[in-house]
Structures are given as C-alpha cells and as structure tokens.
Computed example of a mutant assay.
Amino acid sequence: MATARFLARRGCSNSRRRRSTASSRCGPGFSGGPAPSSHVRASRRGAGSGRDRKRGSCHSASRHHSRVSRNGWPTMTLLAAAIGARANAYAPYSGFSVGAAIRCPDGSVHAGCNVENVAYPEGTCAEAGAIAAMVAAGRTAIAEVWVVSDGPELVTPCGGCRQKLAEFADAGVPVVLADLGGERARTTVGALLPGAFGPAHLAGTSE
C-alpha cells in the first residue's frame, strides 16, 4: 500500500513538472490563439483539422527565436503566432484561412484569425481579431504586424483592416506579408493606407 501511494505521488509530481516545462517553452506575452506552432498545416477547406491542432506544439516556435527581424525582435514569434491562429480559422464558405499577429511596444504578441459567417458581411478578418485580442489584453499600440496566408498571391489587409490598424499604429509601423514558409514581402501601415482618416480630422468639430 505504501509503495502504491509513493508511485501515485511520483506520477502526479512528474505530470505537474511536464506541464510546467511545456508552459515555459511557450513564453510570456502571447494572447489570442493556441500555443505558437510553425508546423501546423491548416485545411484548405477552412478551419484546421483536429489532427493538425494536436500536432501543434510551442517548441517549434522557441526553436527559431535566434532569428531576428530588422528591428532586432524575434521574427518567428510573430510568424508562429499567426500560423497558430490561422490553424483555427473558421472559413467554411471561402475555404481561405488567414492568420495575423501583432507585436506591441512592450513585446507582447496578440493573434487572430478570420471568422466567416453565413451572412457574409458579418464575418471578421484576422487583423481585426488580433486587434481585439490586443485591446482585450489592455494594449492600445502596435509596433509590428504579420499577416499569414497560403495562396499563390500575397494577402494584404483589406481596406477596413488598414483603417483599424491605423487607429493603433503609426504610419511607419512595418506590416509583414508571409506564407507558411515565412516572410515574402514587407510594407508599412502608411504605405497601405496613405492619407488615413485620423483624430486630427475631428479637430474643431462640435459635439
């Protein structure tokens, strides 16, 4: 009986240790999606399959943290976060999944995916989802944006999402366009939306 109790306690301790180790690999400051994974492949029919989600793990993101972007921040954190969010995209009508990840000035990362609706205009874009996750986490400034898709052409934020990004990002904030293999092009919020409507346009208006 004493031996059985000892083995049970040891098994519990090992289980807690494994959970703690897995959590530490993912790193702090991530919100709005599953643990980042660079080898999750989303279904072309829309949402990623259950098998894909089970295969996803956070160690693949941490393995690439040695890569840095032009501003010195780890790029794979944002790429993996966007890919991980894209794996959960709900796209049963278009079959086209998109993931987005935002880095804030404090280094926190917030991700989102596109969510379609049978009433088509009610669907939301990946960038909007990432912004919502950022604001829900108490942040209101964007330092970098990644948008990930898996089509033959690069996907840029739509007009509405460009305005949403401009609400929280300066014109010079980089927007990286990527596929599942990594970065393919780079632009800025200002280049995507020149002459953006902003708070200055409301100056002097009566309440």
Rank of each mutant, 00 (worst) to 15 (best):
V176Q: 07
N71Q: 10
C26M: 15
L177N: 09
A133V: 03
R103W: 06
G27D: 14
R70D: 15
P157I: 01
S108L: 05
L7W: 12
V115H: 01
Y120K: 03
S43Y: 07
L7T: 11
R5H: 12
R5T: 13
G159P: 02
H39E: 08
G48A: 11
C26W: 15
D170K: 12
Y120P: 00
R55E: 14
G172N: 14
N114C: 12
G46I: 14
E116Y: 09
S97C: 13
N117T: 06
A101F: 05
L180G: 04
W146T: 02
R10Y: 02
S66F: 13
G29D: 14
W146L: 02
A42D: 04
R63Y: 13
R41M: 11
D52F: 01
R103H: 07
L7G: 06
F197T: 10
G50D: 13
A80F: 05
G112C: 06
G190V: 04
M134E: 06
V115G: 00
A200C: 03
G95E: 09
R44V: 12
G160M: 07
G48V: 12
A80I: 04
T77R: 15
S49R: 07
E127Y: 02
G48P: 13
S37F: 02
R70G: 11
Y90C: 02
M76W: 13
H201I: 00
H39M: 03
S43N: 15
A42R: 11
S108A: 14
T140V: 02
